[in-house]
């Protein structure tokens, strides 16, 4: 790890000012950035500790929106009664991620920005476009069992690893950020970027911008929602495939649907095509399977991960069945 200056920020402005220098980074829970710093993948020379900032509240705004401070711990968010009762998909996604200890550390802001677990990204002795733009992608022709099948490019096929983000994508969250030039809000779908030609640029967050909060807009039918994660072992592992599903079924017909996939996409994968199939359709296996086919229709397999396409479909069908039942 490279030496760095450690700064304890006292408030938002303070933090933003400290993070303005070129190679500065915020640190919240530390669970991703310290991991990467130890491996020389992140090399900030100034680390700004934001844990003293007052961003650790979960509030319900007058319009019903839930505002989650960026420093709220993943565990606190998952167990918050409003979330576990009204947005089980989010609670379940959070609880399926990492371990109890890590969830006690990980913040909502940090989770949004966690980086891929592509093994080549993690090993500085291999070329990797995301880590070192232009050096090449070792995964495309390498060992890529855990890489993505959706949203890939010829520069990078890294999976976005977050579970929380998949649920937030389905819920249409809004991310609030504050920078030297003031505040702005970013719809979830616009936050993460596809790798395209520049896999090292992962989000639309600008350098030095601080995430302050995430809003979960009112979605009354989200009471019926579910996150299903499939992996090689029962816990403490990233997803091979996962599905976040919100369904509003009335009288055997799906009125509203929200679908997002994890473990298969280069970003948290909201599937509007699947939602389109579902909306207005009967809640039966046929519908679910058609939606799953649609969701994965653009999928591209690589040497070791072709199975993810079928697995993701089945995961989605199962999640839809669990939430929407069968008529």
């Amino acid at each position: 790890m490279e030496p760095f200056k450690f700064i304890r920020a006292q408030d938002n402005n303070n933090a933003i000012a400290a993070a303005a220098v070129a190679d500065a980074k915020f640190i919240a829970g530390g669970t991703n950035i310290i991991d990467l710093m130890k491996l020389n993948i992140e090399k900030p020379h100034q680390v700004v500790d934001i844990n003293a900032l007052k961003l650790d509240k979960i509030e319900t705004l007058s319009n019903g929106t839930i505002r989650i401070g960026a420093l709220v711990k993943n565990s606190d968010l998952a167990y918050h009664p409003n979330i576990s009762k009204n947005y089980p998909v989010l609670s379940e996604a959070l609880l399926s991620g990492a371990s109890a200890q890590l969830r006690n550390m990980a913040s909502v802001g940090g989770n949004l920005l966690q980086r891929t677990r592509c093994p080549y990204f993690y090993d500085t002795s291999y070329p990797c476009n995301k880590r070192e733009p232009g050096s090449g992608c070792s995964a495309i022709n390498g060992y890529n069992r855990n890489n993505a099948v959706l949203g890939t490019s010829d520069k990078c096929i890294a999976t976005h690893p977050s579970d929380m983000c998949v649920a937030m994508a389905a819920l249409g969250a809004i991310i609030h950020v504050q920078g030297a030039k003031g505040m702005r809000s970013i719809p979830f779908a616009d936050f993460h970027l596809l790798p395209g030609k520049t896999p090292s640029i992962e989000t639309t967050l600008k350098h030095g911008e601080l995430i302050t909060a995430v809003d979960i807009p009112v979605m009354s039918f989200a009471v019926k929602s579910h996150y299903l994660k499939v992996r090689d072992r029962a816990s403490y592992e990233f997803a091979l495939a996962s599905a976040a599903v919100v369904l509003d079924v009335q009288g055997g017909r799906i009125q509203h649907a929200r679908v997002a996939l994890g473990g298969v996409g280069t970003k948290p994968w909201r599937s509007t095509v699947a939602e389109k199939v579902l909306t207005g359709a009967l809640n039966n296996e046929q519908t679910y399977r058609t939606a799953a086919e649609a969701a994965l229709s653009a999928a591209k397999p690589y040497t070791h991960n072709a199975f993810k396409i079928e697995l993701a479909k089945r995961t989605l069908v199962r999640a839809l069945t669990t939430v929407g039942g069968m008529s």
Partner: peptide, 25 residues
């Protein structure tokens, strides 16, 4: 344990990628 098919070095070099059974298993 997976090896890189091109240069033969270990790819799954940590306990997040080399999976051993946990309590939940």
């Amino acid at each position: 344990t997976a090896y890189d098919p091109n240069d033969g070095r270990v790819v799954t070099r940590d306990l997040a990628q080399y999976l051993v059974p946990v309590h939940a298993d």
